[in-house]
Nucleic acid binder design. Structure first.
Lengths: 194, 194, 194, 194
DNA sequence: CATGAATGAGTCTTCATTCAT
DNA sequence: TATGAATGAAGACTCATTCAT
């Protein structure tokens, strides 16, 4: 497996996002993904160990970009409050920009066995670390109380954002997502402060 | 289908929870559930339309009890703040009481197709309505600002609680869940109040 | 697996012999065997663990009968010489009676991996034991010299008979096999006696 | 196809023997043989028509040398008895010298379809002719009775030697093979004479 | 001559569901 | 109601072979 890189690799990942978003993971046969990517079935296996590996790689690839972009944005901000806002907005923005990806991350990717779920959590760790760092810095700077349990607060933040996105996906993207960044930020910041 | 009622009906539901928690959704064959319930494979189909129907019924049954118990508790409280606390605590308590059920609701039940997921959301609506009513009453009583978007706030609340429970399940119930009710309540109430 | 017994079990074994003899092991798809046996593909797996297990079971079943019949015949003889003749004749006779089985045992069954081959040798052990007992008795009775290495002699005997049968199969049963019992017996007995 | 000759041709044959002996025929993919031979997969097809052709060529090549060497040895002998002994000893010796080749000829090469088996028999014909000539000469010289059926006797001889070698391979070469030449010779010569 | 990325036909096995008893 | 033997559709994966470079 010459994994990672190569336009075929990218093509298969993109095809997978499209096919899985449209049909759901369990109705996304490897042959369907191959067809969408305009490669032979067997070619898939030159780039991925098995079907599950497509899913993992997809998540790694997309989540990597996701975290990268978020980081870049955050680095330009100094205020903790704005950093938190930026994080929320970027989260909503990036998923709103790619409806298919949103469907896959919010719905289809959860349809997985314990093993895959652990893999996903591993990948997710980077992003959660990003939230943590904001919280820790916030405590240092006195924006959040010293008593704040960062790990716990991070769960609340992530859970809230995630649920808002999931609802948006479930409602079939009927409304705009990014404008929800402000009320989300208000509520979370308020909840954390004092 | 003589659906609903009959001890075999209950036995199959309980067997399903046990088997799915132990083996994961995709390794929980109908025959395995039948064996655990001490009935023949075919008997399953006298009580359930198909395999998916077991899942839906399981969720209806357990969620029905869940909501019922929560309602009863909440009715005994008058203060909005305490109602919200009660809701959170009951949520955590009931899932902590039944580890298998927690695994099924937090992890395995999400491994489903769009159709089943819609069914689940239908069932969930009752519970979300419970949260809504607290929020609406809170606005009326002036505990929450009139500007509060109940639907949105409910997503934040549910998302936060849900994520906390999911984390607990993923960490294999290594710590106690109910004590997290207080910090959760503090944070959420704070976030809502303003 | 309710293995062993049941007319379906027998039907599948017999179908397998027929299909494998006609098409060769590697072109005998499970579905082809199922069709020949007039059962569904899945039914095969109620009686056999996997495709290879059909082959093993086939050999166990047929070889069991083969050895059983040979034993019964041998028990009726007292003279060592005649016992050896009976063994050879029965060997040739039983395979001549069932051309398909002969093809399978002489050709197709050898197309197997080390693991299966060991299984086959296990099954074969009974038959080789039969040869051994004749040789040991022969030494006791003074028909064969005390210096006779039974294990070695058995290999020579089995190898000779086996090769004669294989040649007959390769020549597509163009001539009669049983008449070869006498010259085979002459040669082997002569070779052993000294 | 520039078949026959070229060091790559030899390298591929030798790689095939090694790989097949180590992994068994069915786990010896063309790519594995190519790797072992340090050539590209496609290069195989410059020297061999297809995978099966590797096997046939392997057998032709090795068997050719085998027969050649045996012939040379036999030509130095005049006595029929010694010729038979030489043949047996050379057979055992050459296979004992190359364990991998022995595995391939005794076990893996039998895992083939009818077509390939016929090809192999064709190649084998030369060797069987060698045995025949000893028998025919033996009859002429009066060492064997005029009634001897050479074709039949050859099967017995070949079957006996072959089985002895196969047993040795199956027992994973735990004992020495060449010393069995004498008892084999004794037994076979005795059986033929009279 | 040599390469090796790409192809795609081919098949074993699982398991939800049925139905004769 | 209850049984469980039987069904058969469906799909991931392998690997011999090709061909553009």
């Amino acid at each position: 497996m010459g994994k990672k890189r190569g336009q075929k690799y990218e093509a298969i990942i993109d095809a997978a996002v499209k096919v899985i978003a449209a049909n759901g993971y369990h109705h996304s046969q490897v042959s369907k993904i191959a067809k969408e990517a305009s490669v032979a079935d067997g070619t898939i296996y030159l780039y991925f160990k098995n079907k599950e590996d497509i899913l993992i790689s997809l998540f790694e690839e997309k989540m990597g970009q996701f975290v990268q972009k978020s980081k870049e944005k955050l680095d330009k901000e100094v205020s903790i409050e704005k950093k938190l806002f930026m994080l929320i907005e970027m989260h909503l923005m990036q998923l709103e920009e790619d409806h298919n990806l949103a469907i896959v991350t919010q719905l289809e990717l959860r349809q997985s066995n314990k093993q895959l779920r652990n893999k996903i959590n591993e990948v997710l760790r980077d992003y959660l670390g990003l939230i943590d760092s904001i919280l820790v810095d916030g405590v240092k700077e006195g924006v959040f109380p010293a008593s704040l349990n960062a790990r716990f607060a991070r769960q609340v933040i992530f859970g809230a954002i995630d649920e808002v996105v999931t609802n948006w996906v479930m409602k079939e993207h009927k409304y705009e997502l990014v404008p929800l960044a402000k009320p989300l930020h208000d509520m979370l910041l308020n909840g954390l402060k004092k």
